[in-house]
Design a protein around this nucleic acid. Sequence first.
DNA 1: CCTACCGATCGGTAGG
DNA 2: CCTACCGATCGGTAGG
Lengths: 171, 171
Amino acid sequence: MVSIRKTHSDVVDAAGRLFAERGYHGTSMRALGKELGLLGSSLYSHVDSKQDLLVEVVEEGARLFETSAEDARTTQGTARDRLAALVTGHVTVVLDHVDVARTFLNEARMLDAEHRDRVLDARDHYERVFRSVLADGVRDGSFRSDIDPKTASIYILSVLNALERMTRPGH
Amino acid sequence: MVSIRKTHSDVVDAAGRLFAERGYHGTSMRALGKELGLLGSSLYSHVDSKQDLLVEVVEEGARLFETSAEDARTTQGTARDRLAALVTGHVTVVLDHVDVARTFLNEARMLDAEHRDRVLDARDHYERVFRSVLADGVRDGSFRSDIDPKTASIYILSVLNALERMTRPGH
DNA sequence: CCTACCGATCGGTAGG
DNA sequence: CCTACCGATCGGTAGG
């Protein structure tokens, strides 16, 4: 068993795992080092600060959801097809990247104001894609005309976000 | 303005506020003291440890939801009335005790194994009340016969829990 | 990636 | 509730 040098992305991945499990403030650089078989101080040859690690994980989450939304938005077919793509895409992101998704959802508020605002903007945009697909669907007859796109999008996203909660150990 | 001595419950309330906002590990005893106009060390005349504070806040949350569920469960009328009571009760708890509810939902996993298990049991029980009211409603004709009580209860609780997320500042 | 270390902050205690 | 303090741990750096 040869011990291989860790890469920057090994560090970010491990950070995502620990941030998801214990939270950002519950994770020390020494604990993160141990997770990788390193000392805490060794991490600083890969990253500049602990906060930078959080930024990287959270922005990876934002990117994953944005990409999924963009793919769904440009899906051919009816609004119904696009909503299906949004839902499938969301579920896929959460199941394939549980740790990133959980960190994105729960630890983004630990970011400094500047980065946190960017993440909130990204979430707003994501929700607006749901809302506009729902509104399209009301217009093109995919959905009942008495639904309110804003309310419906909040409900759908609520159920989707609950996926993360259900992947917590012991639940 | 006379400065009044703080009580045990002042300390627990302030802890709930800070735990909800910054997380358990993001809250130091010194910061909690400052929130109350005290030094961190002064808190130890009111509580034995930081972990005890988390236990108190989370168990207060568990108690609030349990009481609401118990009230709803024993409500006279149809299963539909009991479901309405469950939903109203949940919303009332979250809106009247945002900080406790948020700490209960997000920080319970920071408890030591023993207390965390108790909280998970309480949540299971809470969800089972929803499920059994839904099952009753299918039987007594309150709800459509093709709904699955378990799935429906998860969906309803997902939307209800999203309430907490929406009360976060900036959302 | 480790050794050796830094100042700051942590949870908590003794004594008043 | 404060003063004065404890050992442990924190994020991070210099130098190799």
